[in-house]
Amino acid sequence: MRLCKDVRYRIIDGEAVVVRQDAGEVVVLNPVGARVLDLVRELDAVTRILDGMMREYDAPPESIERDVLGFLQELLDTRVIDVMESSESTDVA
């Protein structure tokens, strides 16, 4: 997974201000959402993103997995992130 090409964001007091240039939209993500976005940018595989969140947040793993996967789907649906072709991925998940 990766940020869509037209997306830029910056962290302000722990929240993410996300600009979707092509749609002319701006959304604000809470600190947890902002962290997921950072992990998408740093790591391209869902498994690694989940591992990262589970390391950082004290909650049952199944709860984190459900919430993060749901959030990633929302980011996909709203074209904040997209899925890389397998040849582009630097990690085989």
Partner: peptide, 12 residues
């Protein structure tokens, strides 16, 4: 509003 929300409102 949080500062991020304020920034988003002004940017929009």
């Amino acid at each position: 509003l949080t500062r991020a929300e304020s920034l988003a409102a002004l940017f929009t």
